[in-house]
């Protein structure tokens, strides 16, 4: 009824010759093109031993935006993601050339504390990997590592993190039960809460929904859109539809190189490179 009444108002306005098109504006995905650059990778090469996995990746990732990395298996998108929090450091023989700057600071400089970096750049993995501990202890794991012992403070952090990851309502009455008893989708959201608990600025997601059912996937996607308001998110996904739905920017990787990078709506409606078009339309290979 309300809509009809509102329409009546607009209707009158137009009849009276007010041809302004106020109201009924097209809601666009919030424009993030003016956001500052958060991560800047410059001429980044990455090697596993003698195998070169990344070739000169230069890319500006905007703050408080979702950037999706797509491409066929083995194209280097996950490798690139892992250079952003130096998770590749754990692989023997991995080394890089070029630079990755976060807020202007090169994270591969010798003085960088990797543990601190990883607090700032959280990561959510493909397969949900909660610790076999209680829900509370899972979320409190990070803060405890970093020296928070006060029970009240921890409780506050846990609650906030669970709320932000949209799982609080489902678990608030059983924080002491094992995280292993949650469903796959809940576990993944718990893992996101665990990342949020250490108060990161950037969240890396490595195919966070690929092991989940459609409804849980949708929940994760909505969560990503929510988190984007406060965090810079980089997501690797095999699911192109997912990239289209959740991201503001999309980068297409192939054979360790970045073929195309741009606004998601441009990439998915009118990509510049033919390779990108072939991949997103399934004509690839």
């Amino acid at each position: 009824m309300l809509i009809a009444e509102e329409n009546q108002g607009t209707r009158e306005k137009i009849k009276m010759g007010t041809r302004t098109l106020a109201g009924g504006v097209l809601v666009d995905r919030e424009d993030v093109t003016l956001n500052p650059v958060k991560i800047f990778s410059q001429e980044l090469d990455m090697f596993y031993g003698s195998v070169q996995a990344l070739h000169g990746i230069t890319m500006e990732i905007k703050e408080r935006a979702v950037t999706a990395l797509i491409g066929p298996s083995g194209c280097g998108k996950s490798t690139f993601l892992r250079t952003l929090n130096r998770m590749n450091d754990t692989i023997p023989g991995a080394r890089i050339k070029g630079s990755v700057k976060i807020d202007g600071i090169d994270i591969y400089e010798p003085g960088v504390n990797v543990a601190v970096l990883r607090r700032m750049v959280g990561m959510v993995f493909q397969k949900q990997n909660p610790f076999p501990k209680s829900i509370f202890d899972n979320v409190a794991y990070g803060p405890r590592l970093h020296g928070i012992t006060d029970k009240a403070v921890l409780e506050n952090i846990v609650e906030e993190s669970l709320k932000k990851s949209a799982i609080w309502e489902e678990v608030k009455d059983r924080l002491d039960t094992s995280a292993m008893q949650l469903s796959g989708g809940q576990q993944q959201r718990l893992c996101i809460a665990r990342v949020l608990a250490v108060d990161p600025e950037i969240i890396l997601m490595d195919e966070p929904a690929s092991a989940l059912d459609p409804l849980s996937t949708a929940k994760i996607e909505e969560l990503i859109r929510q988190l984007r308001k406060n965090y810079t998110i980089v997501i690797v996904t095999h699911n192109m539809q997912q990239a289209a739905r959740v991201s503001d920017y999309t980068a297409y990787f192939y054979m360790g190189s970045m073929v195309e990078f741009g606004e998601t709506r441009k990439i998915f409606t009118n990509p510049v490179k033919k390779e990108t078009e072939d991949y997103i339309t399934g004509r690839f290979g």
């Binding site: 098109l21 504006v25 097209l26 809601v27 666009d28 995905r29 909505e222």
Partner: peptide, 19 residues
């Protein structure tokens, strides 16, 4: 579940109504 893009659908529909 309400998806984030439903907002965009709604906007488009309202725009169409304006037209």
């Amino acid at each position: 579940m309400e998806r984030h893009f439903h907002e965009e659908f709604k906007g488009l529909r309202e725009k169409l109504f304006q037209m």
